[in-house]
């Protein structure tokens, strides 16, 4: 399907969108099955959202970034899935190839296979966004998805790519985002500091169990690590930036 779909126009993909497929399966046991009405509602919500960002016409990089943030929240809040379900690549392949092929191939024109097949969920057009929303979700907050916008996609991918060590723990991811949001980098290169910060956390992870700390202590420790990173970057590249 993917090889064919890569060559089709968005309008044709829209005509091929459906709610069922002969190869679609459900987990043997688990929660309530998503019915046709649920899937139709999800398609409507995502297509509506995409339309607001230029779909089906070509869109700018900024528009696609903003669409990602909004659709992450829509998928996470609207699909009523638990992590055990969202870890199944088949769910995401169904979304990209059957339910929303037009939106998937609009978001990533002529994509490599993993963007739609979910052979790697951390790269899937929709799956990566559900997980991004899940990792930052704070149920007690007025805006539970508020942290979604703290890091840009490329920056967040730096955390998510280190999935096992850093991106597996919502507790740690949220603390990283809080620490980052409180930081004033001045004129330092954001990507360079973030990369250095995450590398330091990665190096510490065999000896330090961040998940065993409460949020306040964790934040204080991460603050020290990020300031060490800033000092190291500044030592390499003397600059006049101010640290917040």
């Amino acid at each position: 399907m993917h090889e064919l779909y890569r060559t089709l126009e968005i309008a044709e993909l829209g005509r091929r969108a459906g709610m069922t497929h002969d190869s679609s399966i459900f987990a043997a046991v688990g929660g309530d099955r998503a019915g046709i009405d649920d899937l139709a509602a999800l398609r409507l919500a995502v297509v509506d959202l995409a339309t607001g960002y230029g779909f089906p016409a070509e869109s700018s990089r900024d528009a696609r970034r903003d669409f990602d943030l909004r659709v992450a929240e829509t998928l996470h809040s609207g699909m009523h899935m638990v992590p055990a379900e969202a870890a199944a690549g088949d769910v995401w392949a169904f979304l990209a190839l059957v339910l929303l092929p037009d939106v998937a191939y609009w978001r990533y024109p002529r994509p490599p296979g993993d963007r739609v097949l979910a052979t790697d969920i951390t790269r899937h057009v929709f799956g990566r966004l559900w997980w991004r929303a899940h990792l930052v979700y704070s149920g007690g907050e007025v805006n539970p998805y508020g942290a979604l916008g703290i890091l840009g996609e490329a920056a967040f991918d730096q955390i998510y790519a280190r999935r096992k060590a850093l991106g597996a723990s919502p507790h740690l991811v949220k603390a990283i985002l809080r620490t980052w949001a409180d930081l004033d980098l001045g004129d330092l290169d954001e990507r360079e500091v973030l990369r250095g910060f995450l590398q330091r956390l990665l190096r510490l992870s065999p000896f330090v169990v961040f998940d065993a700390l409460d949020a306040e202590t964790l934040d204080a420790e991460l603050r020290v690590v990020v300031l060490e990173t800033v000092d190291a970057v500044r030592a390499d590249r003397p600059a006049s930036g101010r640290i917040g």
């Binding site: 992590p83 870890a87 999935r163 096992k164 998940d211």
Partner: peptide, 11 residues
């Protein structure tokens, strides 16, 4: 490993 999640339910 199935969900890729890690957490501490008790400290």
């Amino acid at each position: 490993t199935g969900s890729g999640l890690r957490s501490s339910p008790c400290r």
